[in-house]
Design a binder for these strands. Structure first.
Lengths: 307, 307
DNA sequence: TCAGCGCCATGCATCTTCGCATATCACGAC
DNA sequence: GTCGTGATATGCGAAGATGCATGGCGCTGA
């Protein structure tokens, strides 16, 4: 029994959100500030995002995005929907976690986010062999990125990081304290040992979300901004091996890179050890496949650090 | 960088919920305990529900429903996903409300849930004419049902009910106290006046979520279970007009049904007035199109009750 | 200034998905 | 016992959605 008083004018503003998948498209577009970026994040095509957003705008009766030439910005109407849309996402992700909660046995895929260095020199050689052999149905995905992945958004199941993760839906613990040393190419050992610390050619590791332990000390002694900065420890150490300078890094690299040596001196600091933290979502912590990897990482990393 | 150790066996249990719309299908099927019922609720076909649920089960690697012959029941796995799915629904509905929050002007569709009696005898003749004329872009949908609609699930925007709605996301107020009388067909007035109350042929109105004010009194005097029970006030009054018995109802019906009269007597009670409550979601209360209808209902119903 | 690039919108061929219809089955009523 | 009802699963044709390709546009950098 519907009385429609406006047969022609005014699109009916009372739109019901029929396809909940549209929320995902909207949120991705808003987050990426780009239809193309949203398409990449969603694993679909840009045209699909464009058309679905257009359809959603038509259904809602308002434009959600202001299409600039190079920039996509939420309209005022769209902006007030971002936080509710994130709430929908959180609910869906919680649902996905609930679906995993009843999993039995160590089988399936576990995604671990870590740095290239931890992946190549620690996890792959010392953790994975025994782990994969012990659990034949376990699959591991190593997400090596210097970007801090968002565990809360399910971008990974486990994360090995150099910084403690904030509380909340995440849990974790410190798994290693790696002694740090000032590394230098053996060929340059003599030359650099003669220089005062502040004149050393520092090669620094920079990370958007992590400040290395030695950073403060370098500031304190007035070391100039490094001639070379890297966002990758591998590249940093490659530069050290090439004789371009000195860098603080875990002593563990000495074992796999015999061309490196430790530069020591009275004026040189002994920075605090590098701490490695393992984190996961609380809802995943007891899921067998995650717990198996979690505990293997804790055990092996602790054993390695104790050597 | 993915290491898949199980190329053949075991479907990957780590399934990402790619299409959030599936949540809606799952929830509808779980709620209705039927694919057919879910299809009706979603406005789609039963085959679509069946196939999407099957696809979802395949993606999750577990069956969600146990297909009995006549009954559809959640499996243990599915049962633990119902509450998370409801959380998703709440988030989506909140998003829909947020989309309405910025609406300007009184335009669009407003759905009012009420009984047939209130619709035919009160809202349509005394509220809608002025309302629709004053707001040309307003459209009204009258959902006449004896089932109590779930405002929280957006089944309607406004509800006129005989009982106060529980607090929480809903707001509302009492809009009328209708004096109640014992109505009888004029032709039967003499005959019924001679009977003691407990021997009167009561025609009772029954409602799954509402107990009429006179119910307790009838119990108290030991009136037998009514010979005729109706879930519709219209039918109930039709029975009274046909001379089948007596019924408590609003005195207002006397104005539109001249063939009715009031049966009075010393042993007869004057039951408490019938209260009518108006309710809406808090998030909609200030949306112009809802507020206009809300306030028109309050004003007109109060004026009518005061006559 | 101009070429290059990345972004969004749109036409078109294709493929998935939907809705209708049918088959099958189980339960309950007569 | 038999029939009728309502449920789910599946075949088939059609409609809708998707992905690829193109075009237009504005910004960036040489």
């Amino acid at each position: 029994m519907a009385l429609k008083s406006t047969p022609t004018s005014s699109p009916a503003p009372t739109a019901t959100l029929d396809d909940w998948a549209d929320v995902r498209f909207f949120l991705a577009a808003a987050r990426e500030a780009s239809f193309s970026g949203a398409a990449r994040a969603l694993g679909t095509d840009q045209s699909t995002v464009s058309r679905r957003i257009a359809a959603l705008e038509a259904a809602l009766g308002h434009r959600l995005f202001e299409r600039g030439a190079r920039t996509l910005a939420c309209t005022a109407f769209g902006a007030q929907l971002v936080e509710p849309a994130r709430a929908v996402e959180r609910a869906v992700l919680a649902l996905a976690d609930a679906a995993h909660a009843s999993e039995q046995g160590v089988r399936g895929r576990v995604r671990i986010a870590l740095t290239e260095g931890l992946a190549q020199h620690v996890v792959v050689p010392f953790v994975l062999p025994a782990l994969l052999q012990r659990f034949p149905e376990l699959a591991i995905e190593l997400l090596t990125s210097d970007q801090a992945v968002d565990l809360g958004r399910h971008e990974a199941d486990l994360a090995l990081r150099f910084f403690r993760t904030p509380k909340g839906p995440l849990v974790g613990q410190r798994v290693a304290r790696l002694p740090v040393a000032l590394l230098v190419a053996r060929t340059q050992l003599r030359r650099f040992a003669a220089l005062p610390p502040r004149e050393l050619p520092w090669i620094r590791y920079v990370h958007p979300a992590f400040e290395p332990p030695e950073a403060r000390w370098l500031e304190a002694i007035g070391a100039p901004r490094a001639r070379l900065e890297c966002t990758s420890v591998e590249t940093q150490l490659a530069a050290v091996r090439a004789g371009l300078g000195v860098a603080f890094a875990s002593r563990a690299f000495l074992r796999v890179m015999p061309e490196l040596a430790v530069l020591e001196g009275e004026a040189l600091p002994t920075p605090p050890p590098l701490e490695i933290f393992l984190a996961t979502r609380a809802t995943l912590r007891k899921v067998p496949r995650v717990a198996a990897v979690y505990e293997a990482l804790v055990a092996r990393l602790r054993a390695l650090a104790a050597e």
